[in-house]
Amino acid sequence: MLWKDQYELGVPLIDAQHKELFRRVEAFLQVLRSGVSWDDKALQLNDTLEFMKGYVVEHFRDEEEYQESIGYPGYEAHKQIHNNMVDYVLEVSKQYEESNKNEDLMQQFGGRLLAWLINHVAAEDQRIANYAREKGVSGNDK
């Protein structure tokens, strides 16, 4: 299981979204790495890509609103990291369509997404939780 309890921030809405994100990415990886033909995989992977484009944006927006609500000083830098990831997802999605569903492109995306997500939640997002605890505002959930 990709999700680990140590990733929890103590903010119920954000934690729930993170768990959903990890669940979806895990399902995506299982399809991506399964032994079925690429044509069969491609159909299922399309669904995940569409989900990522919508859900990731929604989650990032909610997380940024939370950061603003507690006055997180790293808000701008964190938002930039989110924007860069959204741009990457959109760009890969575009290239994937233009390449007529190139498998290597999607394998590259899977590898980067996996490492990015773990680092982002285990390191970058934990800084938000640490700040909230230090300032005594960790209970300020939406």
Partner: peptide, 9 residues
């Protein structure tokens, strides 16, 4: 490609 991309990240 997956492994290379993950360690690159």
């Amino acid at each position: 490609a997956f492994v290379t991309s993950a360690v690159s990240e």
